[in-house]
Amino acid sequence: MKRCSSLWSAVIAGCLWLGTASVQAAQLDEIKARGVLVCGVLDIFEPFGYTDVKTRSVVGYDVDVCQAVGRKLGAKVQIKPVSIEARIAELQQGHMDLLGAGLAFTPLRGEQVAFSDAYYVSENVLAVRAGRGITVPGELEGKRISYVKGSISEAYIRQALPGATAIGFEDVSSAFTALLQGKVAGFSTSQEVLHKLLTRLGDKAAQYSILQPAIGREVWGLGIRQDEPDMLVAVNSALRELEAEGAMQAIFDRWLGAQTLYRMQRSFKVEPIR
């Protein structure tokens, strides 16, 4: 009797596993069947996702990545604007298939959604006036550093320079102006923001230096629902093909490269998030 019961338990477990596998496979099949991949992006996060005033459509780095992945999956991409606060919840609730919204990996987020391979790396850096004897981040210990309130910069400053005084400002312009006016010795923000600010200074940009190494590093992945292993495999395969073809470099150059306001060089490649 016990043997029979065990046999039936094994049969039922096998059926459940097969049923689950079918459901998971059907999720990717559904995207291919309808021919549409719904991708959530931010629409106020230039240059990664923002509304073009001329076309009134959402464009940017994340949008191009979504479009490229969609082509690899054989699907037309539907861009869905999302807010920072609701982006993970909307993905979990099935309002989109893929989330490309500047989503930096953290252990907590890793429990909420599945992350693709890294498709972008954003470094948090420090800017100082050149020629003042400060050449590495550690030399800002004990000094005043500006940052934007509510940004991750504050945590990076306190972790890397616990003896520094972090001074929060309401917006980027105010925090940067504090450095320009000599009210602080350093300014902390993402490399994208800082490169754009310095470019706008024109010839005066040479009066400021970006310190290395960075004090913080955010690794971004595309968000996928936890119960979609086939989708995760397909998205990672697409990203790796796009990397090998040079498409990811082309997307970076279009939005952040030498011919843009950001004038940045790509220092990363698509690879698993560790």
Rank of each mutant, 00 (worst) to 15 (best):
L37G: 04
V38M: 08
V38R: 11
V38T: 13
V38C: 06
G40E: 02
L42M: 14
D43E: 12
F45L: 10
E46I: 03
E46K: 13
P47H: 10
P47K: 01
F48Q: 08
F48H: 12
F48G: 05
F48D: 01
F48K: 02
G49T: 02
G49K: 05
Y50C: 02
T51S: 07
D52Q: 10
D52W: 09
V53N: 11
V53H: 08
K54S: 12
K54Y: 11
K54T: 13
T55F: 14
T55I: 12
R56P: 07
R56I: 05
R56S: 00
S57P: 08
S57R: 13
S57H: 04
V58T: 09
V59P: 02
G60W: 06
G60D: 04
G60A: 07
D62Y: 01
V63P: 10
V63D: 01
V63H: 09
V65R: 07
V65S: 03
V65E: 09
V65C: 11
V65N: 06
V65L: 12
C66I: 08
C66A: 12
Q67H: 14
Q67P: 00
Q67M: 11
A68E: 04
A68Q: 05
A68V: 02
V69E: 06
G70I: 01
G70V: 06
G70N: 03
G70F: 08
R71S: 14
R71I: 12
K72E: 15
L73W: 03
L73R: 00
G74A: 11
G74Q: 11
G74P: 03
A75G: 04
A75Q: 00
A75M: 03
V77D: 03
V77C: 11
Q78R: 13
K80Y: 10
P81M: 03
P81K: 00
